[in-house]
Design a protein around this nucleic acid. Structure first.
Lengths: 211, 211, 211, 211
DNA sequence: TATGAATGAGCGTTCATTCAT
DNA sequence: CATGAATGAACGCTCATTCAT
């Protein structure tokens, strides 16, 4: 293969990636409009202004599109966790920031939490290695914050940091879902604002591990 | 309207309710057999030994059946919460029991937690008054336990019991979903057993509010 | 169940059967127009003036429609074999009549031989018990003619009648296919008419077994 | 048109033919791997290491590729017929060898007999001159064997050799298809082995023409 | 000449909902 | 009240063919 062929091939690959991204973006738009469970190939194709068959040149199955969407959302989540952490030097505050970041992420990407959290349950969607890797990065980041807090004696010496990282995941997603789904019920029932409500959750979590 | 007409109407309404319950029961049986996502009207009709069309005399949409199913599952949840509470006189232990009850409820009714997720996926739906009432009873029960704990000085005086009741709800459901859906990931990643993992969560929650 | 309910049920079952037959007939019409390999559910539905979904109330799978079509064609084949046999008392002539009947059957039902003979090869279509039973009847009939010929000393004593019944099947279908598919080639190449050509085949077969 | 233009044109035509052959070979490889019914243009293109569009420079339709495939298979058939004939000097044995060769050809190239059926399923198609020429060669060969047998007085003087050549074709292909498709039925029903079964067929055919 | 991205009609199948009886 | 036959849009996916480059 000549040098110029190399260049052409690389350019073609690049363009293919651009189109793939275009499809992902369209899928995202559709999902944000109708929800993940009603995301259909035909709607994505229409959004992308492509024929349905064309999508299958870039993704073998519908599942693969959703998987890519999930990877994308996890990458974004990682980013905002990193942002949250960088905003303070106090590990306990960093933990708080992570929990808040979770709330804000879902609030500004309303339907994303179908993806990041639990959608896979309903469909047969498997966790691919790439998906797992994306999750792993997030977990590692949170664990590192917790370990740091532990070394500084800010949290109980007995705290299992990996376990608690997952507790943070499970509980915060649960809280966000509750807020999302029972929005009306909560605003009717609670005296507090939803922010204050989420705040109470964060307080309990942090108090629960503080040394 | 005469008095006897009133009576007739009431009796008719009662019978309608009986049949409605029969349909709900059938829907539940189907759901527990095949899962919520594969619950079809035709299967429910067959289970209920009714024609498909008949179901539409009692429910306007499939969604409405599912909503009723949710009410039913909340009623069962209420019952096992009551059981959990009755097993101890110590309010803190009662709180623990409630959280464990939540885990066990979903673990022994695996397919029930699809219901929890259902309203997310169809977030256009409103919580009907009946649904809210069912939730309210649960909330009231939990709040009463928390209030009791507070009066005994076992938990922080500053604790907002209503808020925390909902925090318990949101976080425990989130934990159960995490365990359900990321079962493999968790067992591969954690050193602890899943029971121990959930235990850590409960510890943090209780520690977080203890006086 | 009361007597009148019985009657109603029987009538309903009957009507269902009528509709089933209507669909089969429509499928047959489509098949004769476009060939079995291009027979689609949508074309059958259009022909039957029914919605596509309606077909699935009467047949679980497309395959089942084809299977019914096959049974039908085998039943017709059995009938014309019986006719052919009844037209002579001479077993050898009966054998000839069977072979001719095969030709005429396919000539007057051009596309049927896809069904009776070999279609199943191409698709995953299995021989159901009903299908096999239909074939068995035909085989039994032919074998009985051959056995009769043998007892009358008209054919070689060494003739394996079952084997030869299948040889008759295989070769005659092969001949009909050849005539059907290579029609032009044959008329251009042969001096004989196609009838005379088939006649030669029959002669050889009969001469080949005559005592 | 000048002389050198002629040469160029001829050379171009030759190259075109080479590529056409390359595509045919690739199509054959795909067919033998996945079967005729699942032979797709994209798979052939991949096998040939050409773009899909390129195939359409050499063949107007997918059908045309399959037609060429048929030509190829007939050429191979011709070769093995010639082999069969060369293995004996006795014309009757040569006839037997030809019939056996047919069986073995399809048995060792299982997927080839899909091709035989192809034109049935698409019976709108005409036999192209090239296809006919390929068939003609085979016919001529068989006829010459039969003529030879006739001159040696081994078969009936009345035998129409051309007709019988086609009878051999039609019946043997029918027998092979029967064995292929009704394999299970035959092995369950017959006492004989399939080889013995085919043997009976050959015996009848030869006995039917022997003087 | 060769490419390969794009097309779009087509496939078999499912199922919530309607409506004439 | 109850039926259940009928609907028809929707689903994910395939693939022969076209066409701008």
């Amino acid at each position: 293969m000549t040098h110029s062929e190399d260049i052409l091939k690389a350019r073609a690959e690049e363009e293919k990636d651009i189109r793939r991204q275009h499809i992902i973006k369209s899928a995202e738009a559709v999902m944000l409009r109708v929800g993940l469970s009603k995301l259909s190939i035909s709607a994505v194709a229409k959004e992308a202004k492509l024929a349905q068959g064309t999508l299958y040149l870039y993704f073998k199955k519908k599942e693969d599109i959703i998987a890519q969407l999930t990877v994308k959302s996890r990458e974004e989540l990682l980013k905002i966790f990193q942002d949250g952490i960088s905003q303070s030097d106090d590990p306990l505050q960093q933990i708080r920031n992570i929990l808040y970041a979770n709330l804000h992420f879902y609030q500004s990407n309303k339907l994303y939490h179908d993806l990041v959290s639990f959608y896979e349950a309903n469909s047969g969607l498997e966790e691919t290695p790439i998906l797992q890797a994306a999750s792993q990065k997030i977990t590692n980041l949170v664990v590192s914050v917790l370990e740091n807090a532990k070394q500084q004696g800010l949290v109980k010496a007995s705290l299992n940091t990996t376990d608690f990282a997952f507790v943070m995941w499970g509980t915060s997603v649960g809280m966000v879902q509750l807020i999302e789904v029972k929005h009306t019920l909560l605003t009717n029932t609670l005296n507090s604002s939803l922010d204050a409500f989420y705040n109470h959750y964060v307080d309990v979590m942090v108090d629960g591990i503080t040394a």
